[in-house]
Design a protein around this nucleic acid. Structure first.
Length: 592
RNA sequence: GGCCCCGUAGUUCAAUGGAUAGAAUAGAGGUUUCCUAAACCUUAGAUACAAGUUCGAUUCUUGUCGGGGCUACCA
């Protein structure tokens, strides 16, 4: 608010001083850098051609104007073309008091009658347990959803499970052949892990077979065609598509194991969905859409019976939509899924949190839906995020370098437990609270580590070093919150109206400034689908508070005014930390 | 080959075209009769390279080098 006010007044200044109407686009207002005196800084360089004066002169004249016209501006200084404005202590004290009285500070209320966004994330395959890549996806999806809600939107979280296709048949076949009828319960392992192992087993046996065939002189596709295992898998797929009861029974049973495993991982991560779609339920609809398109002449059929979309008008290639045998591919299914989802919710926007390796897929998806005459194709937004890499490079399931989601969470749990006990933090609490604490801290560390990085960028995760609880980490922020809670508990009740201290310190001022930024940060993070902005903000706030805490007595402040003011400031800080962390899907403990 | 993304301290991350490029961690040194030392303070260290646009470029353009992704029947 204050920023907008300064900006508007500066525009007016150019108007009044130089008789020039300047566009708001040129105007920039930024927080003053730490090394200079001031709260906000205006840059006059873009306006020199209007003022026809030197940068220093222009800045001084505008500064004088603002000083005369805005009560909040107490003084200013000019360095080169930078106009640094100092806002009065009274103003900041007022802001602090105001924030204290607002319950859901920074959270907007919007139109609550219409679904504005449907956001898809997670999107697992039923033949692989969730891994580190899924974790980034899930955390981003969840947090972006929370961000949009905080901006007053109605958001539905949906999952899309890839539960059909040749790869699923491979695991079913592996189970039939080599599992001896064993269930996950028999073996005491999670269902998703069990099925994942079967998939790997199939791959091994298949490679063995292929090598034998190749040693007889066949190559590439020929070898694949002669593989008995692949033949059986394809046969199974076609049986599945024909609703063969025996095949469906195995399919249902094995998928059931996987879902049980997924549920437990989601629960551990704190992720929930409003609805889960399955490709087995959407691929037929996708086929229908493709056939409709074929009838309309939007698509074409090749001699072998396969159906294609010509994208050369858009500068792209041909895209396969149905195989010669009529079975569907990923794109076919996704067309169906999109249609179903639109029919279910009629949202303003359809969001997809999917890795950037699929940028091309989503470009094509939108174009094809458009060709089919779906007016809502333009409302599809692919929230494309970067890959998680290990120090050794990309994770590869075949090389066994995939970091399993459950394993990672339990390693972090053990690490946080060990450290917490070492630090003697568990001495005064019972075991239930201790366990909650270990969980909160370990998840706080993991989630913050991943979310603080700009979603668009690839990131490196080093399992050895990334499990950290000091510095720019989730636990650091959680700790700051716990410290404040402890302080507030000792202080007792704080009145809403406190007597004002008159003068505030630099640290106090910069904390209030940060608190004042919170609503704007929520807005920006929502617009950019970027939880990283929240993460970096809340870290900055916690760091600033810790410095304040170190150098400033609160309960033992010299005057009662100071004490009450600082308590309010502390309460506001903990409120914003808690709220910001919730947007990241991170809980904050009251003691740690 | 074609298209797209990315190169910032040893490492992991920041920086609407603006001031002396910020943090954290690892390194070196320090802080506890005082509200939680998972904290705080001090110190050293980086824009891959070369041109261009601009009053001003880590940011925009082009080229070189390096890394990653996609590219007609995996999802």
């Amino acid at each position: 608010m204050i920023k907008e006010k300064i900006l508007a007044s500066s525009i007016q200044a150019y108007r009044d001083l130089y008789d020039q109407s300047v566009s708001i686009e040129l105007s920039g207002i930024q927080k003053t850098k730490k090394d200079f005196e001031g709260d906000y800084t205006l840059n006059v360089f873009p306006y020199l051609k209007f003022s026809r004066k030197s940068p220093e002169e222009t800045a001084s004249e505008v500064g004088k104007y603002l000083l005369d016209n805005l009560d909040e501006v107490q003084k200013f200084n000019v360095i080169k073309g930078f106009l640094n404005l100092v806002i009065s202590d009274d103003f900041w004290i007022g802001i602090n008091e105001e924030i204290y009285t607002i319950q859901d500070y920074g959270i907007k209320k919007g139109d609550q009658t219409k679904v504005s966004e449907v956001i898809e994330f997670s999107s697992p395959n039923t033949n692989k347990p969730l891994h580190l890549g899924h974790i980034r996806n899930n955390l981003l999806g969840w947090s972006i959803s929370e961000l949009l809600k905080a901006n007053g939107r109605i958001v539905k979280n949906v999952n899309l499970v890839n539960d059909r296709g040749i790869h699923i048949c491979k695991t079913m076949l592996a189970w039939q052949k080599w599992a001896g009828g064993k269930t996950p319960k028999d073996l005491g392992i999670k269902g998703d892990k069990y099925v994942g192992d079967l998939y790997i087993r199939f791959d091994k046996e298949y490679k063995k077979e292929i090598n034998e065939i190749k040693s007889q002189g066949l190559e590439g596709d020929e070898a694949d065609k002669n593989s008995e295992l692949m033949k059986e898998a394809r046969l199974m797929l076609s049986k599945w598509e024909k609703n063969d009861p025996e095949t469906l029974k195995i399919w249902n049973t094995m998928n059931g194991w996987v879902y049980e495993g997924f549920d437990s991982t989601y629960k551990a991560l704190g992720i929930k969905f409003d609805k889960t779609y399955h490709e087995s339920e959407t691929y037929l609809l996708g086929k229908d859409l493709v056939l409709q398109g074929l009838n309309k002449g939007v698509f074409y059929k090749k001699d072998d019976g396969s159906v294609w979309c010509d994208l050369s008008d858009e500068g792209l290639d041909q895209k396969l939509l149905l195989r010669p045998d009529g079975t569907s591919v990923y794109m076919t299914q996704d067309l169906g899924t999109a249609q179903l989802r639109f029919d279910d919710y009629h949202p303003e926007k359809l969001l997809y949190v999917v890795g950037n390796e699929q940028n091309y897929h989503f470009d094509v998806l939108k174009i094809i839906l458009n060709k089919l005459g779906k007016h809502w194709a333009k409302d599809i937004t692919h929230i494309s995020y970067g890959m998680v890499e290990l120090p050794s490079g990309k994770m590869k399931s075949r090389e066994g370098t995939v970091v399993d989601a459950d394993d990672l969470m339990s390693e972090m749990y053990e690490a946080s437990k060990k450290l917490t006990i070492e630090l003697g933090k568990t001495e005064d609490i019972d075991s239930a609270e201790a366990e909650t604490l270990f969980r909160q801290i370990s998840l706080g560390a993991l989630k913050y580590f991943i979310l603080k990085v700009d979603p668009k960028k690839n990131m490196v995760f080093n399992p050895e070093e990334s499990i950290d609880f000091n510095g720019n980490t989730g636990p650091f922020i959680q700790y700051t919150h716990a410290r404040i809670c402890s302080l507030l508990a000792k202080a007792g009740k704080i009145p809403n109206q406190v007597s004002k201290p008159g003068v505030i310190s630099g640290k106090e001022r910069s904390i209030i400034k940060l608190l004042n930024d919170f609503p704007g940060i929520i807005d920006e993070a929502g617009k950019n689908y970027s939880p990283a902005l929240i993460a970096n903000y809340v870290y900055e706030l916690a760091k600033e508070y810790n410095q304040f805490y170190q150098e400033t007595p609160v309960l033992k402040a010299k005057t009662e005014e100071q004490k009450q003011f600082r308590l309010q400031l502390s309460a506001n800080t903990s409120k914003v930390i808690k709220s910001a962390m919730k947007l990241l899907g991170i809980e904050v403990p009251e003691r740690m």
